[in-house]
Design a protein around this nucleic acid. Structure first.
Lengths: 175, 175
DNA sequence: CCCAATTAAATTGCGCGCAATTAAATAATC
DNA sequence: GATTATTTAATTGCGCGCAATTTAATTGGG
């Protein structure tokens, strides 16, 4: 009993329960968790912008530097796993950071596939200027570290669920 | 002791309190609320993708259609206020939806500056196919509507703070 | 009525994100 | 040791997001 393969089913026995009342009902944007997360993420990035502009960094470049300030030296693969970004995003980004003199890029001699990324002296110097950004952000929104941490822990749990989703539901199509 | 004028200060009397312990300390990516929100947002979008692919919509096109399914007819300005997006994003997006036959675009005769956006029959028909997406998402992550709502309300409060940044401080926790 | 100010969309340019593909190096298998 | 499979980056292409600018229409004040 395979449904139209072009229309993925969510394969839920409970989906039935929703069907009746869902008919002709409107899904409100503001009641969607996804939209709220999406909107919050963009608003936070806008909040960062004036602070990061002083460092001549974008937000993505900034979080990349956060990892580099911590590790001093790493690989693109490790960076990607940490930032949840792939080479399609990181390759041009790291090249940009290299032209700005903040990092160096070179192949690992042990394994020529691997790209080593090392923060430069100028890159380390930038850490000093970035030091107060987290507390500045907190202050800009008027929140407490505790409230931010509480929200972050909840989102962090959600992120784990999103990322470690069981392969059982892996294929959306196979009912 | 005036700091570098090129480095915006967060202008806080309390910032002092952080200064001592922040010295030479590493800011961990995973402890940053901003990064968690950013990562969750992207993971959710990836979760949507297989479902939206069946409708031939991107996530941004989908939330635009959500508003249009609700209002049937609106303006770009109103859409932008609802979605928190500007014409730079919406103009090409709506043109795309128009070429797909889901909406029509025309100037308001009362005010030629305004662009009216109306959902077509084909656009309305698509709502049927999209009806189960929210419940599918919930099921994919194995969460309850209550847990999702709880998280959404907290983020929603955060979003209000981010957008209306008033000196009036609302605590994220007393929603 | 005229002119400046405001408003709404469109345009331009840049930097992501990410799917999909390619290329090269290494590992695994026989 | 040759062949195949896997791993790692780089590349390509597309669709956002958004700052900044431009264009056109409307409004408001004199």
């Amino acid at each position: 009993m395979q449904p139209d393969p072009h229309t993925p089913s969510c394969n839920s026995r409970d989906a039935h329960a929703y069907h009746e009342e869902a008919h002709a009902e409107t899904v409100l944007l503001e009641q969607q968790l996804c939209f709220t997360v999406y909107a919050v993420s963009r608003e936070i990035t806008k909040l960062y912008q004036p602070l990061l502009k002083a460092l001549n960094l974008t937000y993505t470049q900034y979080i990349t530097m956060l990892v580099l300030w911590e590790l001093r030296e790493t690989t693109m693969k490790a960076l990607g796993e940490r930032l949840l970004l792939d080479s399609g995003t990181l390759t041009p980004l790291l090249k940009k950071l290299e032209t700005q003199g903040l990092v160096t890029r070179r192949r690992d001699r042990r394994d020529e596939r691997s790209l080593q990324v090392v923060v430069t002296e100028a890159g380390l110097a930038l850490q000093e200027k970035a030091r107060h950004i987290p507390e500045c952000l907190l202050q800009m929104v008027g929140g407490t570290p505790e409230a931010a941490d509480d929200l972050r822990l909840r989102l962090s749990a959600a992120l784990d669920i999103l990322r470690n989703r069981e392969p059982i539901i892996n294929n959306v199509n196979d009912v």
